[in-house]
Design a protein around this nucleic acid. Structure first.
Lengths: 354, 354
DNA sequence: GATGTCTAGTAAAACGATTTATTGCGCGAA
DNA sequence: TTCGCGCAATAAATCGTTTTACTAGACATC
């Protein structure tokens, strides 16, 4: 925002932003009048239609746009939300963000996005900085929030109960049930579970849901078949390594249920390299249904989370909470439903060959 | 940003934001003094160390944070950039954005991200709206810009020459050369090319580079083997369809070079479904090297673009241009180099079996 | 005693809007 | 003639900073 523009407006586009005052001067009106008209304020009722038209015509002609900073300062509203994600370039967060943007932009809101990469200092600092930037609300995606904030918050897959926070969660009980029933129905009895990283908000809840589902099906969860992702890069590397180790230990199993599709894809690679066929020898179930899941080879059987929709719900919920700040009856939890997507990475279990 | 906080600060975190004036009152100093001290302004030289300490101590104690809106309004700086992308949840843009964020946040800048989904009205409108939000500069990723903007602009894979715009481009000549030499060296002579969508900025440049490379290698580009992606969703669907059609026409070829990895993955699926083996019958080369490329089955041979690095370069370039607004000697074009990543989706050509 | 130089700050004007209270003015009614 | 009222607008305060120009006192110098 240079103070002085070096060149004159070349031609049609008047690039020198024009203030309300200049516009008022040009119209021989006061800034107050122009402002009232532009904002269609009820106080403008007494201003004759003719003048109103004159004002609007001039505004169009000079392409007047109110200075955002000044307006926000005065109204104490920024039409800006904060979005905190662990990592932008990752399927999960990107899809949720996409859903958020979709809706926000329609409503004239913008979002400031930050990613914390699980660094505790950033996790602590970012919400504060965003508040300093006058955000009116915050969406935290797969991000553990520590404290209450002075603005409405929606946490996508946050599982802590914090005052002022609406938790948007998947029905993990149902998700686990769907996957487990699918594997069970195919005759799988020795199933590997790849748990999520410790820092991932869903890890704990999902794991507990899986164990419940197993119990319900009379399926024993063998401790030696339970492994956990380690490391904070969002890469199939992690699922690959953990599966390699499992194979190196000589464990026997017929199916594998991964924490997410990314990990499942890595696991498949490890299985193949060990000479095992998927799904011939081992059935694999992923989680999330990221865009590439359908185009894996074999196409991935997975539990779909409606990620984009979750972003949209988060945005609408937050905006309506912002619109009614006094209302304390906002939802504390919103649950969305998963969907089992059966593709080609699972099939009938054969007897344990290894 | 509710005007009145309903509840008192519960305990330790003083959530009621405190103004410079209140702080000054508390200290029995003028706002001016406090401001000078807080900003470590050279004009604060005459203020004794002791007073300075007193001010800073109080600021810490009350957790004072200058109001962003007021400060920006006064200084005419927003420490905010605009980022325009076609689509957030897409490998290419997400990686570039990730690189941008990485660097920006370190520098105290934030970014407002919008996605236009190739809608012409949004393409026209968004830069204006962002300007209204007082952005100091703009990064356009794979987005055709129409007009000159009153702020510095960096276009990632923009190929138009517009005053005030720094174009950050891949060395497409080299990229095409690498891929073509690779295929040529493996003995491939009949190669399918999947061109990018018309709206994608790289499409034209890359295609021209490919033809040049072919000529250089004495390789004929058969028109019947050239197809183009249609549709604006970032899905492997597109590559799948176009390849299916090609196969339905009964074309014969031994290799396929796709516009991007996403399309290559779709193409592979279509080839397999037609009973062809990759790379046994058909070698496939992708482009970009998205995160999942290495974990495809077969692992994808592809031309890597340093996407994350491109984001970083875009951000540093833009910030340095913002820091020196008068300097007209900024780079008009920055070129980054591709890298050939040979994996398992290409191999020696066999004689044409079909 | 007049002048100059430091020191330690302050007053006040921006920045560009929004909004409340107020002001002439013309006109009909008492 | 005076009062009240609707009309058409405006003046001025405000949002919370930043920044330039200024001041009041203390001390030193000529």
């Amino acid at each position: 925002m240079p103070r002085k523009r070096a060149t004159h407006s070349s031609s049609d586009s008047p690039e020198q932003p024009l203030s309300l005052k200049s516009l008022a001067d040009y119209l021989s009106l006061s800034p107050a009048t122009v402002s009232l008209v532009m904002n269609r304020s009820p106080a403008a009722a007494s201003i004759p239609r003719k003048t109103q038209e004159r004002v609007r015509a001039a505004a169009r002609r000079f392409n007047y746009r109110p200075n955002f900073l000044a307006r926000s300062l005065r109204r104490q509203r920024s039409f800006t939300l904060g979005v905190v994600v662990p990592e932008i370039s990752e399927g999960y967060a990107a899809l949720v963000m996409s859903g958020i943007e979709d809706y926000l932009l329609r409503e004239g809101y913008f979002s400031l996005v930050v990613c914390h990469r699980h660094r505790p200092d950033l996790l602590e600092e970012y919400p504060k900085i965003l508040l300093g930037r006058a955000i009116e609300g915050l969406i935290a995606v797969d991000t553990p929030l520590e404290r209450k904030l002075p603005v409405p918050v929606v946490a996508v897959s946050g599982h802590r109960i914090i005052p002022g926070v609406t938790n948007l969660v998947l029905n993990h009980r149902r998700a686990a049930g769907l996957a487990m029933e699918h594997l069970h129905a195919l005759g799988h009895r020795r199933i590997v579970f790849i748990k999520g990283q410790e820092f991932s908000s869903d890890t704990r809840v999902r794991w507990s849901a899986i164990r419940d589902a197993a119990r319900h099906l009379d399926l024993r969860v063998a401790p030696e078949l339970v492994v956990q992702l380690q490391g904070d890069v969002p890469s199939s590397e992690l699922g690959y390594h953990v599966t390699q180790e499992l194979l190196a230990r000589g464990e026997k199993f017929t199916a594998l249920f991964a924490f997410n599709d990314i990990a499942a894809i890595g696991a498949i690679r490890a299985l193949r390299e060990a000479g095992l066929s998927v799904p011939g020898d081992i059935s694999v179930v992923g989680f999330d249904d990221i865009q590439s899941a359908a185009f894996q080879n074999p196409a991935l059987t997975t539990v779909r989370q409606p990620l984009r929709k979750m972003g949209e719900i988060a945005a609408t919920t937050l905006l309506s909470r912002i619109a009614n700040p006094a209302d304390t009856s906002y939802p504390k939890e919103i649950m969305v439903e998963p969907e089992m997507v059966v593709r080609a990475s699972t099939c009938q279990a054969r007897s344990l060959s290894r």
